[in-house]
Amino acid sequence: MFAEIAFLLYLGHLLADYPFQTDHQAAHKAGCGRTGWAANITHAATHVLTCTLLLAIGSVLLGWQLPLLPAVVAVLWIGGTHGFIDRRWPVAAWMRIARQSGWAAHGGAAHVDQTAHVLALTLAALFLAA
């Protein structure tokens, strides 16, 4: 069951991060003030809704009996961690600590960002499958 949950959560992540993310969200989700926080929260909410929908579809089609409270915790974890990572400073801080400034200057932050998101999704899938 872990593999199916992880796949659906990853698919939800890709849908919410690419086709469902608006230009406004992408441009402002790391910004300060009301505009930045609104963009960040609506983008994170898109992740919560998309992953919730895919878990519900998986439950119906694959006959899962996911308990409601752990499922809610998992999708809120996904939304919360996604919003945190997308503030961008956590990725920048990690790359400074890991001495990856050269890689950061050449597009590496996007890879570290996506790896952090996949780690959070994997933890959520492990939690649900346990």
Rank of each mutant, 00 (worst) to 15 (best):
F2I: 06
E4H: 06
A6I: 06
L8P: 00
L11M: 05
L15T: 02
A16Y: 02
D17Q: 09
D17M: 11
P19Y: 11
F20M: 15
F20T: 03
Q21G: 03
Q21H: 08
Q21R: 14
T22H: 12
T22K: 14
A26K: 13
H28A: 10
K29I: 03
K29L: 06
A30Y: 09
G31V: 12
C32A: 15
G33R: 15
G33P: 04
R34S: 06
T35V: 15
W37M: 13
W37A: 08
W37G: 00
A38S: 12
N40D: 06
H43W: 11
A44H: 04
A44K: 07
A45L: 15
A45F: 10
T46K: 04
H47N: 03
V48W: 14
L49Y: 13
T50I: 11
T50W: 12
C51A: 08
L53G: 03
L54G: 07
L55S: 04
I57H: 05
G58S: 13
S59P: 03
L61R: 11
L62Q: 06
G63A: 09
W64H: 11
W64Q: 04
L68N: 03
L69K: 09
V72M: 12
V75Q: 08
V75E: 06
V75G: 07
I78T: 02
I78P: 00
I78L: 11
G80V: 05
T81S: 02
T81N: 04
H82L: 11
G83H: 10
I85K: 08
R87T: 02
R87Q: 08
R88H: 01
R88K: 10
R88F: 00
A92S: 10
A92D: 10
A93S: 01
R96N: 10
R96C: 09
A98P: 09
R99W: 00
G102S: 06
W103S: 00
W103Q: 04
A104T: 01
A104M: 10
A104K: 09
A105E: 15
G107Y: 08
A110H: 14
H111Y: 12
H111A: 11
D113S: 06
D113L: 05
Q114K: 12
Q114N: 13
A116Y: 13
H117M: 09
H117L: 06
L119T: 11
L121T: 00
L121H: 09
L121S: 00
T122C: 01
L123K: 04
A124G: 11
L128R: 05
